[in-house]
Simulated assay, not measured.
Amino acid sequence: MQKAHRQCRPCSSTRRAPAHVVVATALACVMALSGFPVLEPAEKPAQAFADETADAEQALDDAQLALESAEARMTALTAQYEAIKRESDELQARISEMAAQALEAQQALIEGREALGKTAVQEYLNGGSAQSMLTLLLQSTDFNDLVRNMGYLDAIMRRQAEDVSEQKERSDNFDALILELDEQKDAQDEKLRTLEQKKTEAERVVASATEALSDARDDYAARLEELKRKADELANSGESGGPVIVDGADTVDRPDVVGPDAEVQPNPDPAPPAPAPEPDVPTPTPGDTVGWLSGVASAYGGATDPYTPNPGTTATGAVCDDWSMGVAVPTSWDRYWQYYGRTVEISYGGQTVFAVVNDCGGMENGARSLDLQPGVWKAFGATSCQDWGLRTVSYRFL
């Protein structure tokens, strides 16, 4: 940006005016720009006027340079921010797609585990494969009957082996999805941390320009306001909407199943800790969307919750019953409703479970980070809300 040509300073290419005209003209311009009444030249010595004019001109030059530098830096920051934001949004699209796949794989794994469990129970009741074979041998009336029974038993055993193999494949697929999802999320977290740094730098640019222009004229005020507007846009990017609770929701104002005096069980195998804080990056809060966090998780819903309808209707209209894979977040979190629909990855005891945020609640005024619905705490091996109680988990939003 080129400096505006000031009419109050004579150009070197023009004929020099008489000294008293130069001094008077320069003084009038500077005093007008500074908001002070213009004094007659006779009221001060000419040299004093000339010194004051030079100081004022230099101050305006410095202010102009500071503003131009701030505008250039803000333009660069905005371009960098938008480029990184696009990359982060692309990663988020892939993460959301993979999170949906992980939820499906998790459900298939749970159903397969239940089917194998029923088969194991049936085997136990029937005395196992060896007992079944002996029974068929004893019950066979002739050789052909024995061959037929042996073929039937062989088919059953092959089917059981296939079930075990399919379950192993489901487990391997689920583990592979978790690994790839973690890699994508780590890459996005790095982008989000960089965006936070850009926001912080934008705030510093505005603060520096404000200080440099504190004594400047009003004609710079509009440009300064534009800088502030751009910094605010970066700071508030991604924020929208307001609290939403659907009509008929009956799980929001629920009493806690476990009281505040209950002992919190520590996580016996927490997820890797979040990276060390970086300069100019705010310390993560319980509802932060960057990196792993640690917090207390409670449980609610289903047949073992005496305070919540079964089935119940969550704040988003989803069903909360004995098998729902949802979680609630505290209403004390800033803009808690923006977590609705987000997939959250929860780690406890070395096991990973994916759930969807579809509800909210008081949750001891935010002392608890997540409230788990039955499908989630059952996936971790708990048998009831009371059995789960209060446990420290690692979690992050995808």
Results as ranks from 00 to 15, higher is better:
L60N: 05
C385N: 13
L134Y: 08
A4Q: 01
L67E: 04
N144G: 10
L177R: 02
D280E: 12
E263S: 14
E123N: 12
W333T: 05
D154H: 13
L181S: 09
E225D: 06
D232I: 07
A318E: 01
R391W: 07
L116M: 12
D62P: 01
L134T: 12
I84P: 05
L39W: 15
D359G: 02
L33C: 11
S347H: 09
P270Y: 07
V164T: 13
E82F: 11
L398C: 14
P266W: 14
A235L: 08
A50I: 09
D232Y: 00
E211D: 06
R86F: 04
A262W: 10
W377F: 14
S129E: 11
A207P: 01
P275A: 11
E201W: 10
V258H: 01
R204H: 05
A235I: 09
F36A: 15
S324K: 03
L153K: 14
W323L: 01
D186R: 04
P311E: 00
A17I: 13
D334F: 14
C11K: 15
A105L: 11
C11H: 11
A212C: 02
E190D: 14
P10D: 08
A17T: 08
T331D: 00
V147I: 09
L138S: 12
P275W: 09
R159F: 15
R148L: 05
P270C: 12
D334G: 07
I95H: 03
Q107H: 07
M363K: 00
G301D: 07
T352N: 02
R158E: 15
Q338G: 04
T314F: 04
P330N: 08
W337H: 01
L390R: 12
A297K: 03
N267C: 02
Y340G: 07
G341Y: 13
